Amino acid sequence: MTEDNITQHIIDSLGGGHFEVADDNTFFFQGADNKFPFATIVTKDSESDSASKLNRPGVFRLNLGVGKETFRALFGEQEQASIDFAALDRLMPHPVYAKMYWVSVINPSDKTFETVKPLIAEALSLAAARDKRK
């Protein structure tokens, strides 16, 4: 999967949302609220987020905010210290935002992306529910 393929899939799923590109990173929002994205595609390390080694050529990370139950079903109470956050094509807790139930995958294959699609739908649904509560 490429960044463009993933972006197109999310755009096709948005139904009223939008995305913004800033500093080569893509942020996906539900509705008009630009405060908190439900998904991101990140292409660079930052001071606070470098565990994924995103500065490698051609490397990007898809990040999604899922529900607590989904997160725990995927990862249980796994210790963060045992995770290789630079591994390609592996669904894992987000290296910084796992406590907020964010998941990530670096350069997902087509097969892995198929398992991620329901998580994209869930992240969008949760964002829509938050938007309705406002």
Rank of each mutant, 00 (worst) to 15 (best):
D24F: 07
N25W: 11
T26C: 15
T26N: 14
F28R: 08
F29V: 07
F29Q: 02
Q30N: 12
G31Y: 07
G31R: 14
G31W: 05
G31C: 13
A32G: 06
A32L: 13
K35C: 09
K35S: 15
F36E: 12
F36L: 14
A39I: 14
T40A: 06
T40G: 03
I41Y: 11
V42T: 13
V42G: 13
V42W: 12
T43R: 15
T43A: 07
T43N: 12
K44F: 01
D45P: 01
D45I: 05
D45N: 08
S46T: 02
S46R: 01
S46P: 08
S46E: 08
E47G: 08
S48E: 07
D49S: 09
S50T: 05
S50W: 13
S50M: 12
S50Y: 13
A51T: 09
S52P: 02
S52Y: 07
S52A: 11
K53H: 15
K53I: 08
K53M: 13
L54N: 04
L54S: 03
L54R: 06
R56M: 07
P57S: 06
G58K: 02
G58N: 00
G58V: 00
V59Q: 06
F60M: 07
F60S: 04
F60N: 05
F60K: 07
R61L: 08
R61K: 14
L62Y: 02
L62V: 09
N63R: 05
L64I: 11
G65Q: 07
V66C: 01
V66P: 00
V66G: 00
G67R: 03
K68D: 09
E69D: 14
T70L: 01
F71D: 10
R72K: 15
R72P: 02
A73I: 06
L74R: 13
L74Y: 09
L74N: 11
F75Y: 02
G76Q: 10
E77F: 04
Q78F: 06
Q78L: 13
Q78A: 13
E79H: 13
A81M: 09
A81G: 11
D84Q: 08
F85H: 06
D89L: 10
D89K: 12
R90D: 03
R90F: 02
L91H: 09
L91C: 02
L91T: 05
M92W: 12
P93M: 09
P93G: 09
P93Q: 10
H94P: 06
V96D: 04
A98H: 14
K99P: 00
M100H: 06
M100W: 11
M100C: 04
Y101V: 01
V103Q: 01
V103L: 01
V103C: 03
S104L: 05
S104P: 04
V105A: 11
V105Y: 01
P108W: 00
P108D: 01
K111T: 15
K111L: 15
K111M: 15
T112H: 00
F113K: 07
E114Y: 15
T115V: 03
V116C: 09
K117A: 11
L119E: 04
L119Y: 10
L119Q: 05
L119V: 04
L119R: 09
I120D: 14
I120W: 12
A121F: 10
A123H: 12
L124A: 10
S125A: 15
S125C: 07
L126M: 12
A127C: 10
A129S: 05
A129W: 03
A129M: 04
D131P: 01
D131I: 06
